[in-house]
Write a protein that binds this DNA or RNA. Structure first.
Lengths: 340, 340
DNA sequence: GACTGGCACTCGACTGTAGCGAGTGCCAGT
DNA sequence: ACTGGCACTCGCTACAGTCGAGTGCCAGTC
């Protein structure tokens, strides 16, 4: 179990070289490219230990070594410093995000920016409704029995939903409904609304009750329970970099996983405050993504978190770089949101 | 230039076999699997002619024949009947689209349905704003100097946009603005609004004019000119079927093209009434998609067209089947929209 | 004149062999 | 504890040989 400093240095060198060249790295090449101060033979001994401990492995008997998921994990946890951004990257981020007019705009720009900076697949979750507060609810009559319910959240998100009324409803009743729901719900966190919505129904006048009942059920069902979470994706073309070496030749499972909102949410939606989460290969719970790594973090105005964002790529990725990018972008987006 | 009936039959057989097996088809196999009533030698002669005319080609000297883009074109134009849907497919379509609560919902279900039925990449354009009429405009105060403009179109589309006002604006003024824009714009086709919007500014009272000016510029800029078009995509994982044989081994250009809204719009947005458009390989104007074919059509309530939808796949695709699916789905979606 | 059977030919795919070389593990020596 | 040396492994490449699907052409037949 003893991994002395040099063995760690060897592991670090292996990871760095392999990430850079995409080829198994041998003992000789290692001593040439890094100043380890020892001979190849010594490195070989160290490698044998590292392999025994499960940090690296040999694709074939007569090949160099390649880091295992466990090796990457150790590298990320103990052997790497977060790489500071270059001024050019910093500028790119600012330039990209300035001039966004809209939440949609912010999210789209962010996801493309991330994809471009990291050259990986980027994923950005829209501010979670559960973590937003209601800013305004609007009811717009579409026909005598149909309303369009529009909810505006303090995070800038706007959700709409068609509501089919049990019977014809007058313009005055709509006005009353609008006023009622706004009075009770504006300013509340969406995750806290269910009891309030229930109360709304109970407190309505008999005349309004049926309408309020359907309205509230729609509110609960769609805005709180269901597809409340939205996600933007970019950079899938980056999966094809590195030929077919990454992902053992088949993009299929990855592309499939990326089409499932639920999966993506699991990946980046469970953000904890001020942590950058790194999932490496097997650590991933989604079978289709066992060959991929994910770097994600939460973002939001100030120190609160309203959503997650991150990148996905081959386990053989530049972790320090990507971690730095993800964090930096998250921070900028947070500032942008705080300005609202 | 003379292509008699048998030569056409041979071409048809080649296309069908190649699409089914993904392998160059030879003369012997052809006569075995289709009742052509002639010997392989005769078929060979016909093939030589077809090759001379550019409808088929040989990957290598000692291989069978493969259709060229031109060959597929002839096949689609003259040699294939649109394949009627199976009852199972018909049922699948109905089942899938029933229960959609929302325009968003309809579009998402549709695009997934198409991807699943055709096993290709599916693309659905949201109802084009330019072809929609304004049903309602809503202005919601966000702060003293900010409004949220929400536009609801008769196609069910809802667009929102933050409007930064030149100065503080009172609730009464907002009410006035709302009433004014609704009076003038509701019921008009969005492509016709620019002059009306201009008129709105001219006719405003001095008090409202500055507010109306910014409001109208936002209206024009974002709703009419800019990102007005939205698109949904599904089934990218289907690109990986057929190994790496399709798309000569690199999905890169395809995936890149699919990330460009503009490109997708070009592909399926230019729908003409009641036509199904088939673009085969080279006919495509987008370089990245020279190896792909696109089947698309317009959809909309009744006989009007509000948007396009279609599928994209390798030139070696089941054209009759895909054409049938695309048409059928478009028709169902049209009916669904008409019910609104 | 259109079709057919036969035949020589081409050329990609596959197989087996051999040599190379990067890389290893081990061991004796410092 | 480290190093140099050495035998060994094994994937990769090149090359030769064989096989067979498929072709083009031609002389013969209906």
């Amino acid at each position: 179990m003893g991994l002395d400093d040099r063995k760690l240095a060897v592991l670090r060198a292996i990871v760095e070289d392999y990430v850079a060249t995409q080829e198994p790295v041998g003992s000789k090449a290692l001593v040439e490219r890094h100043q380890l101060g020892v001979s190849p033979a010594t490195v070989r001994n160290d490698m044998a230990v590292l392999e025994e401990e499960g940090y690296i492995r040999q694709p074939h008997t007569s090949a160099g070594r390649v880091p295992t998921d466990r090796g990457y994990r150790l590298f990320v946890d103990r052997l790497s410093r977060v790489k500071p951004l270059s001024p050019a990257e910093r500028r790119a981020i600012e330039r990209f995000l300035v001039g966004a007019v809209d939440l949609d705009d912010v999210v789209h720009r962010t996801v493309r920016l991330l994809a471009q900076l990291t050259r990986q697949v980027a994923v950005v979750q829209y501010p979670s409704l559960a973590r937003s507060k209601v800013r305004h609810l609007e009811l717009v009559p579409i026909s005598t029995t149909r309303l369009m319910l529009v909810m505006i959240a303090d995070t800038g998100r706007v959700e709409q939903r068609l509501v089919e009324m049990p019977g014809p409803i007058s313009v005055e009743d709509v006005t009353d409904l609008r006023q009622l729901v706004n009075e009770k719900l504006v300013g509340t966190r969406l995750s806290d609304t269910p009891p309030l919505v229930q109360a709304l129904v109970d407190e309505s006048t008999p005349q309004l009750r049926p309408a309020m009942a359907t309205l509230s059920s729609v509110l609960l069902e769609t805005l709180v329970e269901r597809h409340e979470e939205r996600i933007a994706l970019a950079g899938t073309a980056n999966l094809t970099r590195g030929g077919l070496l990454d992902f053992q030749g088949s993009l299929r499972p990855i592309l499939e996983a990326l089409e499932e909102q639920v999966v993506l949410l699991k990946l980046i939606g469970e953000a904890e405050p001020s942590t950058t989460r790194v999932l490496i290969g097997d650590e991933n719970e989604i079978d289709n993504l066992r060959a991929a790594s994910v770097v994600s973090t939460g973002y939001g105005p100030g120190s609160t978190i309203v959503g997650g964002l991150g990148v996905l790529g081959p386990t053989r990725m530049d972790y320090p770089g990507n971690i730095a990018m993800v964090r930096a972008v998250a921070r900028y987006v947070g500032e942008l949101l705080a300005q609202n």
